[in-house]
Amino acid sequence: MRRTAAKLATVTAVVTAAALTIAPTSASADLVTHCVGTGGAVTVPNDLLVPAGQSCALTGTTITGNVSVAAGANLVVTGGRISGEILIAADGYLDAGTTTVGGGIDLASGGYGVFLKDTGTGSVTVRPKGSATNDSFLFAENAAIDGTVTASAGEIRLDRNTDVTGNVSTTGSYYTDVHDTFVDGTLSVLNSATGSVVCGSAVRGRTTFAGNLGGVQLGPNGTLDGCASGGYFGRDVSVTNTTGGVNVDDNIIDGQLTTTSNTPAAKVAANNRIRGGVAGDQAAATARVSAKRSVQEREAKGEQRAEVRRSSAVQEAVAAGDAGL
């Protein structure tokens, strides 16, 4: 298995929500709908809460307010429309497919993870792990992110025609991989524990990699992952202070490539088109070989976590029954 996010199956579930009025703090306070179980194509005319430790599976549901996923809770939503933002607490999980989220998505410290497929949303934030046990993840496939991606923990993968209108910035992630993705802003990957891969993607702004362990791979034929093609970088690219190897192959860089203080020295293939030239240390070019990940276990772990949590969430929601609205 290569370093790739899961091919997670689309979940088909019916939504059930039990309405609960929270005691208002003022005359204008909104009602909050609690969702425990399964239910269908209804409109929730206010905010929605998945209570701590509970599971909610929604299909075709419209939510006119914000959504909160409490500690240890699961929300699986398919074909939904959410007008506001989604806030996910520690050990909380969000799985959104063919869904539109008007606001952003915020995964708290120690949040379990976020999986987005064929889904549009605002900015996505993954908070620092801190003292939490969970190391979060963000997997996005064919997602339209109208804003930024900011992550300070976990496994981060943008894949399969994902589009980000703003910057992508990660600091202290477990890894950050960008495959078949368009980033309209800058890309910055700092202090990743096991490195970063960018393949078949386009980044319009400046791209910066610094302080990463495990290596940086731009394009195919590196040591981290196998992929079909390199990418396009619209501004300067800088790869510095990297441990574990730097491979740059089959890319177009409309700026300068800087490779300094990397151990070992960066390998820059002759087939790159680099408008501003290369500054810094380089190793001798090596023969092109088919690369496969030498640490494939990291991907398998993330895939298994997402699949297990999704299956468990749906089973729990179905077992809770249909309480109606």
Rank of each mutant, 00 (worst) to 15 (best):
T286K: 13
S123P: 15
D180A: 08
A284M: 06
S290A: 14
S83F: 01
V183F: 00
T133Y: 07
H179T: 10
T165G: 07
E85R: 13
I63S: 04
N271Y: 03
A284C: 00
T99Q: 02
G40I: 00
N272Q: 13
T100K: 02
A317Y: 04
T171V: 04
R305H: 08
L48Y: 03
G214L: 02
N134V: 14
G231M: 13
G230I: 13
Q296K: 12
T99M: 05
N142E: 11
R157W: 06
G79Y: 01
A90S: 14
P220S: 12
G102L: 09
V216D: 11
E299V: 08
G104K: 11
E299T: 10
V237W: 06
A9I: 14
T16V: 09
G154W: 01
H179K: 04
T223C: 01
V164L: 11
T43H: 03
D180R: 13
A23C: 02
T62H: 02
T181Q: 10
G65L: 09
G147N: 10
N271C: 06
N66Y: 03
G53A: 12
G234Y: 05
G244K: 05
Q54A: 13
T98K: 05
P264E: 02
Y112K: 14
A27S: 07
D177I: 06
G110C: 09
T43M: 02
G172V: 00
A19F: 01
N142S: 11
A71P: 15
V69P: 13
T165H: 07
R310T: 12
V216S: 13
S290C: 08
T176R: 00
V77M: 05
G65V: 12
E303I: 12
G103T: 13
T165Q: 08
G154F: 01
T98E: 07
E155Y: 13
T99N: 04
G219R: 11
S192R: 01
I274Y: 09
T240H: 00
D146T: 11
S294T: 14
A285G: 03
D254C: 03
N221S: 15
L325F: 12
T165D: 11
R310D: 06
R288C: 09
G120R: 14
T162V: 06
G92H: 10
S109T: 08
T4R: 13
V198T: 15
T170Q: 03
R310E: 12
T59V: 10
N241K: 10
I253S: 09
G130M: 07
A317N: 04
V183S: 05
D146C: 01
A89Y: 05
A5M: 07
A306T: 11
L187C: 09
T181S: 06
K292Q: 15
D159H: 05
T12G: 06
T186Q: 15
